[in-house]
Amino acid sequence: MVDSACRVVYLNSIAFFVGFVLDWVFGEPPSKFHPVVIVGKTISKLEPLFYAKNGGFLSGMFFVLFVLLLFCLPVFAIEIAVLKTNDLFVDLFYEIVSVYLFFSSISVKSLKKHAMDVYLYLKKGDLDKSKVLLSFMVSRDTETMDEKKVITSTVESISENFVDGILSPALYFIFFGPVGAIFFKIISTFDSMIGYKNERYMQFGRFAAIFDDVLNFIPARLSIVFILPAVIIKGYPVVSTLESFSRFRKSHSSPNSAHPMSAFAGALRINLGGNTIYGGILVKKTIIGNFNKRATVEDIRRAVDLMQASSFVVFLFGLAVFFRLSLSCGWV
């Protein structure tokens, strides 16, 4: 069993390396075959069935658990097959599945592209187009935003998605393999589809929203560990980053969002947060940061650079963990 477990570690280490490189070079896989898209379509088709009962908390909970079992059990079964057999074709199939699930669970290049699209149209002076592009990244209303709000909202999205779209899925893959990655992405997809505080989903989507917060709880708090080395690499102010993180990391209604956001605010020395409109309703938010510098278009580019450098630190961390496990298995 020890040899089998070491073989799984070996396969996961290769999948981690290859998956990260594939995402960095190619970005998201085709939507037709994207696991998250498939999960999203499944959620959409099954939602009426589960909501029809009473649309309450328990219905939403059983809905989430059902979809988790539907997608996670097959992946878990493949891993069990690897552990119980010593078959080259089983190992190869597991490796293909692992690479694809991890590759599709992180989004470094995709996040960069969405943010840089907003950046490029702002540089051209096309504020209206930049607001449309920003709407693909955030759930807030973008129509009435001025240029400054578009900039800060883009930076906020970059910082939050560093945790949701890169750090969290990477950590869950490192420690739990492909099952961990798909498990996290299912919950994240549920949260983005039904985790809203509106009349329809207040109770039905509550379990998904809470579960998503729980899964991101530790990664969000660890985000500074990966952002800080990137701050040093990029030459951004270390003291300002640490002070902002220490002071503002809890300044958000979400238990997780302000942790990476406060670090990015300190690194770029700009204020983030503040009042925002969602569905036509003004939501009052605390300002994260205490800086006199006005946010500029270039702060989007700098935030993207910081996100990429932080992602590279995550990559190095993953390789270090797998190297340490390799030592335990006697490979090195």
Rank of each mutant, 00 (worst) to 15 (best):
V313P: 12
S326L: 14
F66T: 01
D128R: 11
I288V: 15
E79Y: 00
V239Q: 14
R324T: 15
G235A: 05
A265V: 08
I43V: 01
T85M: 05
K109V: 11
F183T: 03
F103N: 15
S159I: 12
A115Y: 07
S254Y: 08
F162K: 08
G195K: 03
A181E: 01
S107Y: 04
L319M: 15
D126Q: 03
W331Q: 05
P219H: 10
L88T: 15
L58F: 07
N12S: 03
A263H: 04
I43Q: 00
L122D: 03
F323L: 15
L222M: 07
L122E: 03
P48V: 00
P178R: 05
L127E: 09
V314F: 05
F204T: 10
G279F: 00
K112I: 10
A295D: 11
D141F: 00
S328W: 15
S4A: 03
C6A: 13
I166S: 11
P260E: 12
V321W: 04
G279V: 04
G330F: 04
A209Q: 02
N216F: 06
H259Q: 14
I210C: 01
P35T: 13
I106R: 13
T152E: 11
N290D: 04
I277F: 01
E199Q: 11
K113S: 09
M307D: 02
P219N: 10
E156L: 13
S240H: 15
R324L: 10
Y10H: 14
S107E: 09
E156K: 14
P255S: 08
L327Q: 13
G27S: 06
P219S: 11
V138C: 04
I166N: 10
S310V: 14
V90R: 14
L49N: 13
D141G: 03
A267L: 12
H34N: 09
F204E: 08
N54W: 06
G125C: 03
L83F: 08
F162S: 07
V231N: 14
F17V: 15
